[in-house]
């Protein structure tokens, strides 16, 4: 119950709700399905469709960075590359999917590429991609969210989503590939190691 004084407070003076709010998966799935269908009518190829989903996700990511820093980190935002990636892998993933991402790896070949992978993201849960759409993955939306978070935190990067078939697993895993811009790595190399 609200006390009378709490009700009189202006909305901006009230404390931000901290509780875990859950959303109906069906409602989200239908909304996301409509989003994909809507985007599909406005594009001429798969690349454009993925970019549109990414753009939508980017807006979500920018806002989530602010919210999560405030709620989970007491207003602090990470400024080092690995910390930001861990923030995505742990805090962001827990908020979006209710658990940590399965893996966070650095690419063997180049040091500016990182991969975050997980199984069964809810955006891909109900969607069977037809054969003629080739490599399209609805997880482009999640890639957009990650991009939004990284951009907002000052780590501009190219982010893309891929389905990767795994030996011995019936379901493919979804990998989010993050490639940072050179400026990010230059800045990182100037900073002292902690």
């Amino acid at each position: 119950m609200f006390s009378a004084s709490a009700l009189r407070l202006n909305i901006v003076d009230r404390p931000l709700a901290k509780g875990k709010s859950e959303v109906s998966l069906s409602a989200f799935a239908f909304l996301f399905s409509e989003l994909v269908q809507y985007s599909q009518t406005r594009v001429s190829n798969i690349g454009e469709l993925e970019r549109r989903l990414e753009d939508v996700g980017r807006g979500v990511g920018l806002r989530l960075l602010e919210t999560l820093c405030h709620r989970e980190r007491g207003g602090k935002r990470d400024t080092r590359l690995l910390d930001v990636l861990k923030f995505v892998h742990t805090t962001l993933w827990k908020y979006l999917f209710g658990r940590q991402a399965r893996d966070l790896e650095q690419s063997n070949a180049v040091d500016d590429e990182y991969m975050i992978s997980d199984y069964d993201l809810f955006v891909t849960k109900y969607i069977s991609v037809p054969k003629d759409l080739g490599t399209f993955t609805p997880a482009a939306f999640v890639a957009g969210v990650v991009k939004g978070v990284l951009d907002g935190a000052g780590f501009p990067a190219r982010v893309s989503a891929h389905f990767v078939a795994v030996k011995g697993q019936a379901k493919p895993k979804t990998t989010i590939l993050v490639k940072f811009e050179p400026s990010v790595l230059q800045r990182e190399s100037r900073l002292p190691n902690t």
Binding site: S26, A29, F30, F32, S33, E34, L35, V36, Q37, Q40, Y126, I127, S128, V129, P130, L133, P138
Partner: peptide, 21 residues
């Protein structure tokens, strides 16, 4: 309801070709 109707690539009333279904 899950794997056909929530699939953005399925058109209602058309033949169902959904791998996950």
């Amino acid at each position: 309801a899950d794997y056909v109707l929530k699939n953005p690539f399925y058109e209602v009333e058309m033949p169902i070709r959904c791998e996950l279904f």
